[in-house]
């Protein structure tokens, strides 16, 4: 029997073979010197170099520096944006007063502020944390506001008729009800934090994985560059994976509900 699951697994297999084929093509072209191997060394060379780099461990220190920056900025942004978003989502007056300012500031490309922030905070970690923080705030803030505003009045009324105080309302109703939408914002910001981590290290950095990659390119240490990019991709993959794991636990009820209603 050929079930749909088996069919899918089979076609995914073709996809992986296709991917392997592409990498093999690169390897062959590089071996045949049909591409400039100064720019694109053999895949096998890159991979063995990556292994050496990881076992030597110096690169891990750079990664740790970068992660400390992006994680701390992300957490501060989440805390700040969720609290502000709840206030703005719940009190219509606050939202109406602040909304035009948000609309004005939001399309501002945060990277343009990097030189400004360098002037004020220097080239150290404070500048990078602040930049990442600024960029991560937006998705979480906007989603929190949406989530809170989208809560049905009947739910709030029900909790109140059952005797919930304002604090209980926040804790037992507003926060859990808005959580699925907040999580969407948190997920977007995971990617944002990594992007701004790399950019801030490239523009105003002396260490960290972003600086490592750009510096390797400038010094034409192409193996370092490719290895660094692969490591960065690994971090991105890991972050996505961990986030999905956490959010599946946090809002598993919502996933079940949407799966059911979609049928």
């Amino acid at each position: 029997m050929r079930g749909p699951g088996r069919l899918q697994a089979e076609s995914r297999l073709w996809g992986y073979l296709f991917l392997l084929g592409l990498l093999a093509l690169w390897e062959v072209l590089a071996r045949a010197e049909m591409v400039n191997t100064l720019l694109f060394p053999r895949v096998s060379l890159i991979l063995t170099y990556l292994g050496k780099l990881l076992t030597a461990g110096d690169i891990l220190a750079q990664v740790a520096i970068s992660l400390a920056r992006s994680l701390s900025a992300y957490l501060i942004a989440a805390l700040f944006a969720i609290s502000l978003g709840i206030v703005m989502g719940y009190y219509r007056v606050v939202y109406e007063v602040v909304e035009p300012f948000m609309e004005m500031l939001r399309p501002m490309p945060i990277v343009a502020l990097i030189p400004v922030i360098i002037l004020f905070l220097g080239l150290g970690w404070q500048m990078k944390v602040f930049i990442i923080f600024l960029a991560c705030v937006w998705p979480i803030l906007l989603n929190t506001i949406d989530g809170v505003r989208g809560i049905d009045a009947v739910l709030v009324h029900t909790a109140r008729t059952l005797g919930a105080s304002p604090m209980q309302l926040l804790r037992y109703v507003i926060l859990p009800a808005a959580l699925p939408v907040i999580v969407t914002g948190l997920r977007i910001s995971v990617a944002t934090s990594l992007i701004l981590m790399v950019i801030s290290e490239m523009i105003g950095g002396m260490n960290g994985i972003g600086f490592f990659i750009l510096n390797a390119q400038r010094k034409m240490r192409v193996l370092d560059m490719f290895a660094g990019i692969i490591i960065l991709g690994g971090i991105g993959y890991l972050f996505n994976f961990l986030f999905r794991l956490a959010s599946n636990r946090l809002i598993h009820w919502h996933l079940g509900m949407t799966r059911l209603t979609r049928r």
Binding site: D152, V154, L155, T158, P176, A177, I251, H254, M257
Partner: peptide, 12 residues
């Protein structure tokens, strides 16, 4: 008790 039970129950 509201008419809209689907909105008044907490899905989580």
């Amino acid at each position: 008790v509201f008419q809209e039970y689907n909105k008044s129950l907490m899905p989580w």
